[in-house]
Simulated assay, not measured.
Amino acid sequence: MSYSNLEFHEVRLSEEGVLHVEINRPDRLNAMNEPCWTEYGKIFAQAARDSDVRAVVVNGVGRAFCAGLDVVDSAQGFAERQQMDTARAGLKLGEHIRDFQLALHQAHLINKPVIGVAHGPCIGLGIDLLTTFDVRFAAKDALFSVREIVIGMAADIGTLQRLPKIVGSLGWVKDVCFSGRNFQVDEAIAQGFIQRAYDSRDDAVNAALEYAKELCKFSPVAMWGTKRSINYAIDHTTLLKER
């Protein structure tokens, strides 16, 4: 399958089967607007059907992984909805958020392992993205924040639901989500949010690509079954019911 003619992402597929996805809005610190996250969701939907893809690596181009939602573009969409009556505006907003959530959720749904690489600012929506990945590497300059509380809203694209299931401390999750404070790589590793740290963005990306290449050596059917079973276990009991 082709991954060309993309506006907001650089995508390359290696001979081994590693799909390397780079968010490419460096002038906006890879903050996402609607066309960007729509394209992101389509890349993963296509990769899920592509038998040549065995693993996926995601990082950002430039100084940041993702500095959040592009609030300038989002404000324009909000202004358009203000012209509607309250009921229709609410329905339209609900549809918009649902589409947004589903686009970012594709990394969780895809039947292949996804490795994310955090570097530079990883703010708000950047955390939403990272929580959808199976494994997370980081450069030592990565700076994290669940920032939504600071602008008067609850994180609504998945962080509040996924983060408590990733890390070991519910108190820590509430701390960073209530305060919106920054935290760095050492703290993220201590809590289990980040699995491996490297000196630079390039080192982290290269390590992730090599790791993904190793995963490509295993049976894709076994990998699919392993990811599906782990994800199912997150929300279900392990008890067997009697026949």
Rank of each mutant, 00 (worst) to 15 (best):
S169C: 06
P164M: 09
I230G: 05
W224G: 00
N206G: 13
E148W: 08
H108W: 08
L239V: 10
N182A: 11
S200K: 14
E16S: 09
V221W: 01
L104C: 11
D235C: 04
S200F: 13
V135D: 04
V21M: 02
R25C: 07
G120M: 14
G68I: 13
C216Q: 02
S219Q: 09
D52Y: 06
Q83K: 10
K174N: 10
V58F: 13
G41L: 10
V58K: 07
F218H: 04
R25G: 04
L29A: 09
R196N: 13
L129R: 02
V71I: 14
I151Y: 10
R162N: 09
A207P: 08
L143M: 09
K174C: 06
R162F: 07
F8R: 10
D235N: 03
E16M: 03
I110Y: 00
N24K: 14
R81H: 03
D156P: 06
N111I: 02
T159N: 11
N111L: 08
G17I: 01
I194P: 00
D141K: 02
E22A: 15
D202K: 15
S4C: 03
F78G: 06
R63D: 14
A139F: 01
F218E: 02
E16G: 03
D235Q: 04
I189T: 04
A48H: 10
S179H: 10
V146A: 06
D99L: 13
V117H: 05
M32T: 11
K42G: 07
L19Y: 01
L102A: 07
